[in-house]
């Protein structure tokens, strides 16, 4: 077994996932990432997989590959996913299906397969990325908010089910942050969301990175089943 801790970050091609992967590298982890399209960046110690988190066989193969090469897995971050802003009356059901698949099915599959590897060493950290859309009950985000609410519920149940294996499960809910996810959202809509937060400013990738780093430290072993909302949601 390698001495170097191993982190797996989904959706690491861009945005928050990339920032998280780069931070794990800085902290001495070997990092494995995935997205549906090829990687747009490289770094020493980083391996990118082209895999869709909604595809059960692809996820199983990927996690087995990580386990085979490293013989350990310390951290999994379920970050992959997109959003959609629309009034529910104008939301095609296909959008709901797509968002539930990426956020809920993806988080379920990745966590299940990663926990199978983590339980060998009776230790592991799973961090899921939610959104302030859940506590703010944001109108215009019925499908996205519902998918993220399910991710929060899954986080809390996994915390209990995985506790006997020494695996903690928590979630971080970012405030609006300037990534590809927000392109296409009109600025006044983002202003509306910021107005409803205690801190009326855009989130930064570092805000999310900081909380994930905190939750994955060895000293955070007794924190599980929690959702941390950023920006004062």
């Amino acid at each position: 077994m390698g001495d170097r801790p191993v982190a797996f970050v989904t959706g690491s091609r861009t945005g928050l996932g990339r920032a998280l992967a780069e931070d794990f590298l800085r902290r001495g982890y070997a990092v494995e990432g995935c997205s549906r399209s090829p990687a747009e960046w490289t770094a020493d110690g980083y391996v990118h997989h082209e895999a869709d988190v909604t595809d059960e066989s692809a996820v199983t193969r990927l996690v087995l590959d990580i386990a085979r090469r490293h013989d350990r897995l310390d951290v999994a971050v379920n970050n992959a996913g997109g959003a959609s802003m629309n009034h529910m009356l104008l939301t095609p059901v296909a959008t709901l299906d797509r968002l539930l698949a990426t956020h809920v099915r993806g988080t379920f599959l990745v966590s299940r397969e990663c926990a199978k590897v983590m339980q060998h060493r009776k230790s592991g950290r799973i961090v899921n990325i939610s959104s302030v859309a859940v506590p703010l009950r944001l109108e215009g985000e019925a499908a996205y908010g519902t998918a993220k609410a399910a991710v929060e519920h899954l986080t809390r149940v996994m915390a209990r089910e995985f506790a006997p294996f020494g695996i903690t499960c928590n979630a971080v809910a970012p405030a609006p942050t300037d990534t590809a996810l927000l392109r296409g959202v009109p600025p006044h809509k983002i202003e509306d969301i910021l107005a409803r937060l205690a801190l009326h400013r855009m989130g930064r990738p570092e805000d999310v990175v900081h909380v994930v780093a905190f939750l994955t430290q060895p000293a955070s072993a007794c924190i599980t089943g929690q959702v941390i909302y950023l920006g004062g949601a």
Binding site: S57, T60, L64, A67, K116
Partner: peptide, 13 residues
């Protein structure tokens, strides 16, 4: 499941 995978390259659930 893991033994079947490592010994016989079988991916079964």
């Amino acid at each position: 499941e893991q033994r079947l995978n490592s010994r016989y390259a079988l991916t079964l659930r």
